[in-house]
Computed example of a mutant assay.
Amino acid sequence: MYITITPQKLGGTYSQSSAGFVDYLEKENQGQEKEDMEHFFNQYGNEISAEEVIREIDGNTAKLEKTEPRFYSITVSPSKYELSRLQDNSTDLKHYTRELMKDYVASFNREINGRPVRLEDIKYYAKIEHQRTFKGNDKQIRENQPFATKILELKNEIRKIERGEMDGNIKACQQQIVKLEKEAPHRQNGERIVQGMQKDGPQSHIHIIVSRKDASNRHSLSPGSKYRASEVALNGKTVKRGFDRDKFFSNAEKSFDKTFGYRRNFVETYTSRKEFIKNPKMYFTALMKLPTNEKAIALKILRESGMPMLPGIPTNQAQLAMKVFNLLRRGVDIAIKSSSIGI
C-alpha cells in the first residue's frame, strides 16, 4: 500500500479552483459508455457529478488566504498482492475508502465545539481509477532514456537524409534503431517502455479530494500540519492542533487487512518501511530472521519492486548510512512505493 497526502498545487499545474484537478480525474471516463464510467462518491452517496465536486470544494474556502491550498489530495495505491484479495476492485475500494476516511478523521488532534473531529465534519469526494501510465520519473523511463535519445537522433538523421540535407545510409540507421529497441533494459509485451504507455497488470487505485475547511466552512483541517499532536495557547484558551500521519498510515493499513482478511508480509508493513529508513541495519537483520516461507515471499516482493539487495552489511555505521542514502537517492524510495505506504 502506498498513500500520499499532497496539498493543492498553486500557481502551477492547477489554479486556485479544483476544476483542473477534477477534470484530470475524469480522464478515464473519456470515450466510455455511461455504465462503464467511474463516478465520484463520498461517505454518503455515489454517482456524484464532477460539477458538484467543483462547486462544493470551491465554495468551501472561507477566510483562506490566496496562498493557502483549498484542498488536499490523498492517493491510495494498493499493491498487486493487496488487489488480489478483492472480489470487485471498484466496489471493494469504495468500501475501503469509507473505512479509510474514518481513520483520517481519527488522526486529527483537533476539537470542533469541544469534541473530536467526526466524519460528518469533513468534506471529501473520491474516485476509483483502474489505469496507470509510465511517467518521466519512473525507473523504467529513466533507465530507457539513453536508448530513447539515441533512437530519436537516428530518426532525425533518417529524415535529413531523405530530404537531402545530409549524407548517410538509411538502412544502417534503421538497423541500429532495431538494435537499440531490443537492447533497452525495460520492455513490456515485447516493446520498449516509453512515457505515456499504459502499465500492465492490476492498477486500480483511489484518488480523494478533501476540502481544507470543515463541512461548516468555519474550521481549518489540515492534514499537512507540521504538528503531530500538540496544544497551544490561543487567545487565552488551550487549543489542540496537529495531524498524526503515523497514526493515519498505520490504521489505514490495519483497516485494509481487517476489511479484506489480508495477511501482510513484513516488508509490506508501514513499520518495517520506517525501520528501513531510520535503521537499515535492523531492517535487513529482521528480514533475514523471518521464517523461511515468509522470507521467500518478502524477497520476491522486494525484487519485483526493483529494490536492489545489499550484498553485505558494512560494519562501519557511517558507511552503512551513506550506502543506504545513496540507494535511496537512486530511486529505492520510489521502487518501494509499489508495496508499501509512503512515509
Results as ranks from 00 to 15, higher is better:
residue 219 H to E: 15
residue 200 D to M: 14
residue 181 E to R: 12
residue 220 S to P: 00
residue 202 P to E: 11
residue 202 P to D: 10
residue 209 I to D: 06
residue 215 A to R: 15
residue 182 K to Q: 11
residue 199 K to Q: 14
residue 182 K to F: 00
residue 199 K to D: 13
residue 210 V to H: 06
residue 221 L to E: 08
residue 173 C to N: 12
residue 203 Q to W: 09
residue 197 M to R: 09
residue 214 D to Q: 07
residue 196 G to Y: 12
residue 213 K to A: 03
residue 197 M to Y: 00
residue 184 A to Y: 11
residue 185 P to W: 03
residue 174 Q to N: 12
residue 203 Q to D: 05
residue 214 D to L: 04
residue 186 H to S: 05
residue 195 Q to V: 15
residue 203 Q to I: 11
residue 209 I to H: 01
residue 221 L to A: 01
residue 171 K to S: 11
residue 192 R to Y: 10
residue 209 I to T: 11
residue 192 R to E: 07
residue 218 R to T: 11
residue 198 Q to Y: 10
residue 194 V to T: 14
residue 179 K to R: 09
residue 171 K to C: 01
residue 198 Q to V: 13
residue 222 S to K: 03
residue 182 K to S: 06
residue 179 K to N: 04
residue 185 P to H: 08
residue 172 A to T: 10
residue 183 E to I: 00
residue 205 H to M: 06
residue 178 V to D: 13
residue 209 I to Q: 07
residue 172 A to L: 10
residue 174 Q to G: 02
residue 172 A to C: 01
residue 211 S to V: 06
residue 188 Q to R: 02
residue 217 N to C: 05
residue 177 I to P: 07
residue 216 S to Q: 14
residue 182 K to Y: 00
residue 209 I to K: 02
residue 208 I to G: 05
residue 219 H to L: 04
residue 197 M to C: 08
residue 182 K to W: 00
residue 186 H to I: 00
residue 208 I to F: 01
residue 212 R to G: 02
residue 190 G to H: 02
residue 218 R to D: 08
residue 203 Q to V: 09
residue 191 E to H: 11
residue 206 I to C: 04
residue 212 R to C: 03
